[in-house]
Structure formats: structure tokens, C-alpha cells
């Protein structure tokens, strides 16, 4: 279903510096596809690209807009539309139990506590982890923790999901489970996903793939051609 209107992410004349070093430069980029994958070597700028989209990284020059909203001037509104899942599950959960963590996400938009609780439970249920609701977050496996992290983000009903190597620290079975659930829910709710990954099989299942290396987009297009270009570049 693509009931929610399509989203547009717009980069213009963007350059990001860390001190003197150019981390990422993107003269012009428009993203509208539902499933986009971002590949490339470590330190090439994948993370920076994702973080530009929800304003976690400020462009030193130029601007990034999500549906016409500037990611810095309207950062808060953009972050509510664009959820972010990081690779390290341990750093994303703060509350003692998954239920409380999802409730914490909802605190600003759902005032009533019982409504908030049922919304949180509903969200955990959708991801198939409602039985973990009252468990201690610390005792969960990292695969389970990562699903909880996804729940804390999906609870806000984002239009965009930014996934920064979300399965790097998971074993194969957990990684597959995570990717399946992301795909199912993204399709169900019409969420645009932007996934940075080293998993080329996963990257291949997108509509569009960006290859980022040395701080710029070096290839952009259908997954198979871009992945081939990446393989070619990386061969020694």
C-alpha cells in the first residue's frame, strides 16, 4: 500500500566538514524511491548521509530538505517524520523494559498514560515482540534489543526510516528476522527506507542504490549496476 503520499528528500550544494576534512559533498541529490540502499567502504560517508537526512549532522554548506522542511531549522519536525535505527542496540535503549522505552518515545505525542501504554503494546505486537514487553532490556539478546530499538522508532509512525547498518552486530538468523520485519512494516505503512549496509544481498533488494566513497556519491542507480561497480572498485 502506498496510501501515505510519497516523500521527497532533497540535497542541494551540501558539504559537510569535520574541521578541515571534507566528510561528504553532494552537489545535487533527490530521493523519492520507497526502498533505497546505501553501500560503500567504511568511513566513506554513508553514516553522514543518513544523519544529514534527519538533521543529526548539520551541513556546513548547502541544505537538506525533507518534504520541503529544512533539516536544521525544522529539525524537530523532520526527526518526527524520519526515524533512525543505529547499529549498536546497547546505546539505543535507556529504560529498564521495552514497554517503558516505547512509552518514552510516545510521551510527547500521546498525553494520556493508558492510551500511551496501549499504543506501545500495539507497536511491540506489530513487531512480534509483545512477549518481551515487561522483560529487563538488559537481559535481551542483541537481536531482540535491536527489534525493540526499531519499535521505539516505529511507534512515532515515521514516513522515513533511516537504518544505519542495523544488522552489523547481529547473527544471521536475527539479521534476517530484523530485515523481514522492517520490510513488512515499511510496505504495510508506506514508509520510505534508506538503509546503509555492507550486506549486498540486502542492498540488492532496493529500488535504487547509492555508492558512497571518499565523501561523494560515486554511483547511483539500479542496485545491480551499482553493486557491480562497487565490486569492481573494491577488487584488489
Amino acid at each position: 500500500m502506498t496510501s501515505a503520499g510519497s516523500v521527497e528528500i532533497d540535497f542541494k550544494e551540501v558539504r559537510v566538514f569535520a574541521g578541515t576534512r571534507l566528510l561528504l559533498g553532494i552537489p545535487q541529490l533527490q530521493l523519492t524511491e520507497r526502498r533505497i540502499s546505501v553501500i560503500g567502504p567504511n568511513g566513506g560517508g554513508k553514516s553522514t548521509l543518513l544523519q544529514l537526512v534527519n538533521g543529526l549532522v548539520e551541513p556546513t554548506e548547502g541544505y537538506v530538505r525533507v518534504d520541503g522542511r529544512d533539516t536544521i531549522e525544522e529539525g524537530r519536525a523532520v526527526r518526527q517524520r524520519a526515524g533512525f535505527v543505529f547499529s549498536n542496540p546497547a546505546a539505543q535503549l535507556v529504560m529498564p523494559t521495552p514497554l517503558e522505552d516505547v512509552e518514552l518515545s510516545l510521551r510527547r505525542i500521546v498525553r494520556d498514560t493508558s492510551a500511551r501504554r496501549s499504543a506501545a503494546l500495539c507497536c511491540l505486537d506489530e513487531l512480534g515482540i509483545v512477549e518481551l514487553a515487561e522483560r529487563s532490556s538488559q537481559e535481551l539478546s542483541s537481536g531482540q534489543q535491536q527489534l525493540v530499538a526499531l519499535a521505539t522508532v516505529l511507534a512515532l509512525k515515521p514516513q522515513i526510516l533511516l537504518l544505519d547498518e542495523p544488522t552489523t552486530l547481529l547473527d544471521l538468523a536475527n539479521a534476517q528476522r530484523f530485515n523481514q520485519r522492517v520490510q513488512r512494516l515499511a510496505q504495510l505503512h508506506g514508509i520510505m527506507t534508506l538503509t546503509a549496509t555492507h550486506d549486498l544481498d540486502l542492498a540488492a533488494r532496493a529500488e535504487r542504490t547509492l555508492l558512497i566513497d571518499g565523501g561523494s556519491v560515486v554511483a547511483d542507480g539500479p542496485p545491480d549496476t551499482v553493486i557491480t561497480a562497487y565490486r569492481h572498485r573494491s577488487s584488489v
Binding site: 544523519q51 534527519n54 543529526l56 524537530r76 526527526r79 518526527q80 526515524g83 533512525f84 543505529f86 549498536n88 546505546a91 539505543q92 535507556v94 518514552l104 518515545s105 510527547r108 530499538a149 521505539t152 522508532v153 512515532l156
Partner: peptide, 10 residues
């Protein structure tokens, strides 16, 4: 990482 995740969630 924790600060970033908190920021992303507002």
C-alpha cells in the same frame, strides 16, 4: 552513540 539515539528520538 547514546546521545545520537536520544537526539534522533527527540
Amino acid at each position: 552513540n547514546t546521545g545520537r539515539a536520544l537526539n534522533a528520538r527527540g
